[in-house]
Design a protein around this nucleic acid. Sequence first.
DNA 1: TTGAAAGCGATACCAG
DNA 2: CTGGTATCGCTTTCAA
Lengths: 353, 353
Amino acid sequence: MSVTLADVAARAQVSPATVSRVLNGNYPVAGPTRERVLRAVADLDYVLNGPASALAAATSDLVGILVADIADPFFGMIAAAVQSQIGASGGRAGGERLAVVCATGGAHERELTYLTLLQRQRAAAVVLTGSADENPEHTEAVAAKVRRLEESGTRVVLCGRPPLTGTESTALPFDNRAGSRLLAEHLLALGHRRIGYLAGPEGRTTTRHRLEGHREALAAYGLPDPEPLSVHALYERGAGYTATRELLAREPDLTAVAAANDSLALGACAALRDAGLAVPGDVSVTGFDDLPFSADAVPSLTTIHLPLTEAGARAGRIALGMEARPGEVLPVEGTLTVRDSTGPVRERAAARG
Amino acid sequence: MSVTLADVAARAQVSPATVSRVLNGNYPVAGPTRERVLRAVADLDYVLNGPASALAAATSDLVGILVADIADPFFGMIAAAVQSQIGASGGRAGGERLAVVCATGGAHERELTYLTLLQRQRAAAVVLTGSADENPEHTEAVAAKVRRLEESGTRVVLCGRPPLTGTESTALPFDNRAGSRLLAEHLLALGHRRIGYLAGPEGRTTTRHRLEGHREALAAYGLPDPEPLSVHALYERGAGYTATRELLAREPDLTAVAAANDSLALGACAALRDAGLAVPGDVSVTGFDDLPFSADAVPSLTTIHLPLTEAGARAGRIALGMEARPGEVLPVEGTLTVRDSTGPVRERAAARG
DNA sequence: TTGAAAGCGATACCAG
DNA sequence: CTGGTATCGCTTTCAA
């Protein structure tokens, strides 16, 4: 079969224990001995057996990252940042840790399934990203699973997600409510009064918080509850497209559309274009997440800058046990970034003419 | 400690062997016995120990996916498709397999590092995506690593990447040359003659193949070699921005810009806008990858439709050993999709006026 | 600083 | 169809 630690030990004329110590670098080993071992490792082209060491050490080098959708750059950026930290250094066996990225599709059930799978792998840490399902039963089911993971030594981090009470997990929540409020205030300050709102899917924390922020801003301007101007849709471009067409059919005199995330905003742009409405000027579109490409798609864009990379990197460090105490909550604040002016309100009829 | 298979066996009054058989479902077990075991598993809330079974079985439930950049939807779509297959069914222990996504940043060195890490994990399969480094030494180093992985039972799939000779890996290459040629032909047919070209980073297979296709098209029209109108840049939006500004400064009379991938195209759009050139009409921009959001960013877009989802799904199935014979090459053809008209050539001066 | 040896928890072969 | 058990390769006390 393949080369084992014993083979290396034999060649270096030391005991397996010593080889293990050299490889893990967690025990003192004399210089010359160390050299000899490393040479043997190189000579034999030896690669440690991960499962075997994980079994013996009762922990692995894997870090799980749960996201709703890998193809969505919102999660991609977070995952990349987490990985840049966990791959950077540390880890057992002088090695790097590997990121297991799991796409839940926002389905609660798959979230639990993946947590079990990661528990099975004895993952060193798990990072849960994005919005959480608000169903109390589901929340409790996740909390229970998290507790079990923690009992078996897995560190849990919540990134862009509310804290999970009764667990030791560290939370890095985003201030979605304030961000959304600022976004709406921006449109209101420009004079918009009939603002369509693309809310996310129902029953998710981000959806509710962002919608609440939006409402607060309108209320402060003495405007009626925006309920009739809001549509719920999945956080996907296609859903944003459909929802916007629906909104336009229902409320033809909108002057602006605010979206709860950038994917929805992109869909809105496409829908407006197909409806014969030019995007900058005629109807303003605002996104939320401030993804790099969004500014190209939505030339007059106002977004809330969520420091995804920073948050992901922090999550990664916490996952490695380099920061934070158990159960700590470290809010990640959003910053309003006006990418470009959304311009003055125009009469749709005129612009269309 | 935690519940083990032996505990389950005791509670179900069967041997550990039987529990293992029930859990893996790969040996016949009598109905009633099976029931009893499953009940015990549920009662004890038992979760299989992944490392232990991987050690005993000499293979794990992990599938590695190497990508250049997780935050790039090009790779995100492929990774999502691979995952949809491998998570769907099969796998040991009636369970699903987990995807380990590794971001190499296009760096050859990290590619080898990750392959070693996956070898250490005894990954069931590895999917290498995207362009390959053309340096012969590097190619040989990767091939050697792949051979070693294959020797230890890991299946290797190359998705959107050229075949690796001397290995048993299955390749699903894209026809980059033909795609790029079609793209340039499209612009030429519209009357463009001074076409800027944003090539990818030097020394990568996709860069070369796409550039060759571009050149072939120009040559067929009797145009000079486009060398002076080409700029190499990393496959990133920021690099596309910089490269386009550079190109515009050097060649002020361009009427179109073709980009070797969509990230570059997005950067080009931003650069043109900042340079005071409107995007549709004044200068045409073409992307390559046909990512969902690109059409929003580049309203007059022509792209080569690369069936990323289909290719990823096939890669996933092959990784599970459900398709293809060792060493097989299954080309994935691109299809020219004209998303929208890039419109007639206009005099830049006029458009600017 | 190094070695010997007892597990870690499942798998799969060999019997029955 | 089920049970006993050697084995997988490494980690980590405990001694020396």
